[in-house]
């Protein structure tokens, strides 16, 4: 079993299609929706965790690309600029995944990319714009 976290960007005309259903049913994947952001008439964004065999993941990804869904690995989505960070900890109280975390002895902040679910809650919080979304 393999695990993959990806950001799916749907064109506006595809928002109402049962894509996750097909992924589960036809590609034998377990889909964990980490975050959904869909606004009518605009594009939709879905952050999902897909779990399944490597072959299933490959066919699932090919299916999505074929439909015109943009697939990006999640880890590239959020960038923490260590040099800009002053280690205030303002972002710590809102990060739901523990990706932004603080060593309570040193009071220094670190970013654990693997844990980040790209919810973007930290973006408006950092006064030094040390966290950035990268598209």
């Amino acid at each position: 079993m393999k695990k993959k976290r990806v950001v799916l960007t749907f064109p506006p005309d595809m928002i109402d299609q049962p894509i996750t259903y097909h992924l589960v049913k036809e590609h034998d994947l377990m889909i964990n929706i980490l975050r959904a952001n869909i606004t009518p008439k605009e594009q939709g964004r879905l952050v999902v965790e897909m779990i399944g065999k490597k072959s299933s993941l490959d066919t699932g990804m090919a299916y999505l690309s074929g439909l015109g869904v943009e697939v990006q690995p999640l880890a590239q989505d959020i960038k923490w600029h260590e040099k800009k960070c002053i280690h205030c900890t303002a972002c710590i109280s809102i990060c739901p995944s523990g990706a932004l975390n603080v060593d309570r002895e040193e009071m220094l902040v670190t970013f654990l990319k693997d844990k980040c679910i790209a919810c973007e809650l930290c973006i408006p919080v950092c006064p030094y714009r040390a966290i950035e979304i990268q598209f």
């Binding site: 002053i86 280690h87 205030c88 900890t89 303002a90 710590i92 109280s93 309570r104 009071m107």
Partner: peptide, 25 residues
């Protein structure tokens, strides 16, 4: 406050600082 959470009205609220303790040090 520095432990990471406090109790307010019986609810646990996570804490964050605007002032940097590491830089103060």
């Amino acid at each position: 406050l520095k432990s990471g959470s406090i109790n307010v009205n019986g609810k646990k609220a996570r804490t964050g600082s605007l002032s940097s303790y590491a830089k103060a040090r």
